[in-house]
Structure formats: structure tokens, C-alpha cells
Amino acid sequence: MTERKIRVLVAKPGLDGHDRGAKIIARALRDAGMEVIYTGLRQTPEMIAAAALQEDVDAVGVSILSGAHNTLCPRIVQLLQERGMDDCLVLVGGIVPKEDVPRLKEMGVAEVFLPGTSTEDIVTYLRDNVRPRA
């Protein structure tokens, strides 16, 4: 029996085009043996939720540097829940003030990775927290 690979959608919502981080994460997760789908730039929360559902991912990694996280991230969480994807982890990476982290978590974001996080920590987090599927 082969173990199902962890599937992750790396998403870039909002107008910002700085995708260095998103692309590094996508490659690091792939190198760690995960299946990664990168949405490309300027996806609306609706597009991201639809892609997550279609690709049947275990986690959505949202890269955001523009300061629009408080508007966009809760909406992504909500849309995933509306689509019955309660088990799908929403992770946020980018420029997020520490003060905003508790509020994002309250709204259903599983974890926020601040600048300076190593890609290995993110890999470990996913391995530890993605719920195994039958």
C-alpha cells in the first residue's frame, strides 16, 4: 500500500506580484515529496477555494505581502468551509504583523509563518498536521 502524498495548493491572492516566497515554498514542498499546485498570481478567494476543492488538497498555503491579509484570509477560510473542506489547513506566509496572528487564527487560519521561517519547518508542520486519509 502506498501512502497518499500530501497535496498542497500554494496560492497568491490579491494584487501583489511578489512571488519569490510562493515559488520557493512550492519548490521546497515538491522537493519534500508533496504534490504542489501553484495558482499563479492575482487569484480571488473564490478562485482559490474552487481550485482547492477541484484539486482535493490537504492544505492551502496563502502567500501575502501586501497587508491585505485581514480581508483576504478569513474569506478563503470561510469559502473552504462552505465547500465542506473543513479539514483543509489554511496556512499563511508573508508580511503579517505579529499582532494580527491571533485574530487570523481565531478566524480559522491554522498557522501563520512569519519572515525568516525555514522551509523545513513548514514541511514538518504539514507532515505533523495534515490529517491522514483513508
Binding site: 490579491g14 494584487l15 501583489d16 497587508g67 491585505a68 485581514n70 480581508t71
Partner: peptide, 10 residues
Amino acid sequence: MLSEGEVGKC
């Protein structure tokens, strides 16, 4: 519509 959350931020 796409400007929501981004006006004056950066």
C-alpha cells in the same frame, strides 16, 4: 472589486 483590502496599503 479587486482593490478591496489594498487601497493605500503599499
